[in-house]
Amino acid sequence: MTTPLIEAEALRVEFANRVRAVRDVDLTVYEGETLGLVGESGCGKSTLGKAMLRLIEPSAGAVRYRGLTITGLRGTTLRSTRAELQMVFQDPFGSLNPRRKVADIIAEPLLRARGADKATARAKAAELLEFVGLGAEAGDRRPHEFSGGQRQRIGIARALAPGPRFIVADEPVSALDVSIQAQVINLLADLTRDRGLTMLFISHDLGVVRHVADRVAVMYLGRIIEIAPRDAFFAAPAHPYSEALLSSVPQLHPGPVRERIVLEGELPDPAAPPPGCAYHTRCRLAVDKCRTVEPPLAEIQPGRSVRCHLPLVPLEPAR
């Protein structure tokens, strides 16, 4: 897990209303890993995921996939590269054409991106439907005949069809019931393990992320503010915002409800992020420096970086 598969370099996405949704993000996803990307709504996590696939054009910066700069690619090179980069959406119903048969929906990217013939594409669609647990006969039905969890399996099969190496899954289980959510999480885990896929898993649900991710990155107002191995992150978050986020998750503990860090106020306006550290307006530890100087995303332990003047996890002692 040390070969970079896809990298964002100083990636910036600015919308027409001047909201800078992604602010100069550097992010490396390594071959074979699942990187969980978390944050509250409006933090820019979905925009970052889409920009890495060029579903949204970045305003500045670059995306490199296996050493090739894909920002700026056009025509056939772009199409063949895109086949290796796929997306699974939150709302499987909104992203599946209701008038088409499921087998055709899954076969389409094969026909288009890979130039496969119809018979091959059909056979591949049947195989994928088996793999995601729906059975090949599901191919003759239409999306509305399936439940939410089944539709998400169709969405996953479609993303797998062109044979991708990298998948961005944007809140893939958020619309599902708990009992179904677990089925789809397990399916995604099988995918990455059995097919060696690399995944950027975007979610607001920290419990879900803990079960699928190898590493966790936290976003706040368009910036990555912490990135850490999964277990280290959940055992002791280093950024005060990560700490507050984890503390806000309602937990299943018997007895009295424990004290928590309740964040006061709301997310600042992303069009005008506060000066200094963007989180200082809600931070329980903020000092003067935080209000004026933005901290860099600095490595505090091997593989663990945090954008904070006062990280909660001590620096690795110099050896």
Partner: peptide, 26 residues
């Protein structure tokens, strides 16, 4: 089954979540 299928931020991190087979009746 419902309780055990909740992905939690505490306790041991499981590789597989115990899922409930099938779908709710609608």
């Amino acid at each position: 089954a419902l309780l055990s299928s909740v992905p939690r931020i505490d306790g041991p991190a499981q590789d597989r979540l115990p899922a409930i087979a099938g779908s709710p009746l609608t």
